[in-house]
């Protein structure tokens, strides 16, 4: 009988100790908020273009944290998908073509002599990158433009063009070398274009 009681007693003491440790750990390592959404949001390109089907990047970040696929962001392209895949520890999948295709970095440019000053593009711009007043000619602040092309559709006179940001001697960079044997079959992981890490 005593051994039984002793066993029970030891177990009770042990459970108290471990419970205490667990309780302390919960307080000590408590994580505020839902940082994964912030982390996802930080990886998204913040063009606020809505091509993912959400009104802005943050809503999409929230949707991803709730299990939506990570391949709905054409402005971010494959690089963003890869980064998200790394963050969430899932497989990187190709961009979903239903949401648009990855394009080069673009900026909106207003053909200023055609602009009638309707301010519709100003209202449409998610990042306030268009300057102008009613009945005055508008212009795009190229540095602020995210290239989301949300201003193109509302323009009643179609005077907004999306222009590729060209390569100049200042922003030019070397290509990545082709590496060993550029053409090969993807049998093993290291054969793939984005080589896996160590």
């Amino acid at each position: 009988m005593f051994t039984v009681l002793l066993a029970i007693g030891i177990l009770v003491v042990l459970s108290l100790i471990f419970g205490g440790i667990l309780g302390y750990a919960k307080v000590r390592f408590h994580v505020e908020g839902d940082p994964i959404v912030d982390q996802i949001d930080a990886l998204l390109p913040q063009t606020q273009c809505g091509q993912c089907g959400h009104p802005g990047c943050r809503p999409y970040a929230e949707a991803i944290s709730n299990g939506e696929a990570i391949n709905h962001c054409p402005p971010g392209g494959q690089a963003t998908i890869q980064a998200l895949a790394d963050l969430l520890d899932v497989e990187a999948i190709p961009l979903d073509g239903d949401h648009g295709t990855e394009t080069a970095q673009r900026v909106a440019v207003i053909r200023e002599d055609e602009c009638i000053g309707c301010t519709k593009c100003i209202q449409a711009c998610p990042v306030d990158a268009i300057l102008g007043a009613a009945k005055q000619m508008h212009t795009v602040i190229a540095d602020e433009c995210t290239g989301c092309d949300l201003c193109v559709e509302p323009c009643p006179v179609d005077c907004i063009d999306m222009v590729d940001v060209g390569i100049t001697a200042k922003n030019w960079s070397w290509d990545k070398p082709q590496g060993v044997a550029a053409q090969s079959l993807n049998i093993i992981a290291t054969d793939r274009s984005t080589e896996v890490s160590q």
Partner: peptide, 28 residues
């Protein structure tokens, strides 16, 4: 993987479906 490629090729043939874009900045 082979199956996936086959499906992807099939899908590419069908072409992308309608845009799922939403407007961030209200209705036009």
């Amino acid at each position: 993987e082979r199956e996936k490629q086959r499906i992807a090729a099939q899908k590419a043939k069908d072409g992308p479906s309608n845009s799922k874009r939403v407007r961030v900045t209200g209705q036009v």
